[in-house]
């Protein structure tokens, strides 16, 4: 670096026309890190640029209106004329991921309370590895399990074919359980010990301490976990596509087929040619996913700021 001390030391070395070893190392290390960061930044911006340029094409060169895309109820890419209303997919994505979060949040929260407050030993040796295992299972396996277990079950118990919003939400809720649990466990572990002791010393029971002190104090961190879970559910394609039925309309019940932004992309992309309107319309859906990701990142940032306060 440019510390005066190192300049003094490097002076005689310069006479020998050799760069001192520690400075060379410094330079190499910095170059290496800068290079990696540069590659990353270029990659991120090219991806965003690529998605945006393709995703905006239907609006710019094909005359599809933004409001048609956002609020249109019909998706007929092969029709005459072709219609691109993505509202059913938006609805499908939001309903499945929010419902998945509603199911996973209490489960994950209780799991992390169990691991940190109630039985840390059993939690650490059994529950935590189990939940980490859930995170490692590939999504196609989840979809397969959903298709072979959840869908037949729903078909037998409820009206309908089994495939649909509820099946998708159930599969997603298991998939996001690790995210929710891990983030809330970290939050619970970071709780200052004094708060818990302070409450217990006042004669509050464990449940009173958890519900009145621990959870309210950690609420922003816990919500962060839920939002990250929703973000993951929102972006999941394969497992959802396998169980949701993929009907491009807004479902009237939890047991009716639907489709999500991601599932329609994976289903249709093989049948389109690059540069065609249909293909570009799929990119528009991808752009919506990207924008939603920005929103999720923003929400998480806001929550983190509240945690620090």
């Amino acid at each position: 670096m440019n510390l005066p001390a190192s300049e003094v030391r490097s002076a005689p070395a310069a006479k020998e026309r050799r760069i001192p070893k520690h400075l060379a190392e410094e330079w190499r290390g910095r170059t290496y890190v800068y290079l990696c960061v540069l590659i990353m930044i270029v990659t991120i911006f090219s991806i965003v640029y690529f998605i945006a340029s393709r995703g905006l094409a239907p609006f710019i060169s094909h005359g599809v209106s933004v409001s048609e895309m956002m609020f249109g109820l019909e998706w007929r890419p092969d029709g005459e004329p072709a219609v691109f209303g993505a509202l059913p997919f938006l609805f499908g994505s939001f309903s499945t991921s929010l419902l998945a979060a509603v199911i996973a949040a209490p489960l994950g929260l209780c799991a992390s309370l169990f691991m940190t407050e109630i039985m840390p030993k059993l939690g650490k040796t059994v529950l935590q590895p189990g939940i980490e295992l859930l995170a490692g299972i590939p999504s196609v396996v989840y979809g397969f399990v959903g298709l072979s277990v959840i869908v037949p079950f729903l078909r037998d118990v409820f009206p309908g074919l089994g495939v649909g919003v509820l099946a998708g939400s159930l599969v997603l809720s298991i998939m996001i359980l690790p995210t929710v649990t891990t983030v809330s466990t970290d939050a619970l572990r970071s709780l200052p010990r004094g708060l818990k002791e302070g409450s217990m010393a006042l004669g509050a029971t464990r449940w009173q301490t958890i519900s009145r002190i621990i959870l309210p104090t950690l609420l922003p961190s816990l919500l962060t976990g839920v939002v990250l879970g929703i973000a993951r559910a929102f972006g999941e394609a394969l497992a959802v596509q396998m169980v949701i039925g993929n009907a491009p309309h807004i479902p009237h019940s939890l047991f009716e087929s639907a489709a999500t932004l991601t599932s329609i992309i994976t289903l249709s992309m093989g049948n389109t040619t690059s540069g065609s309107l249909h293909n570009n319309a799929l990119w528009s859906l991808a752009l919506m996913l990207l924008l939603m990701t920005f929103v999720f990142v923003f929400v998480v940032r806001m929550l983190e700021r509240r945690v620090k306060r």
């Binding site: 004094g194 708060l195 002791e197 302070g198 409450s199 217990m200 006042l202 004669g203």
Partner: peptide
């Protein structure tokens, strides 16, 4: 613990 109050080195207000 209701009969015995406790205060710590580090103040720990809720």
């Amino acid at each position: 613990r209701q009969r015995i109050g406790m205060v710590w080195q580090r103040a720990n207000p809720f």
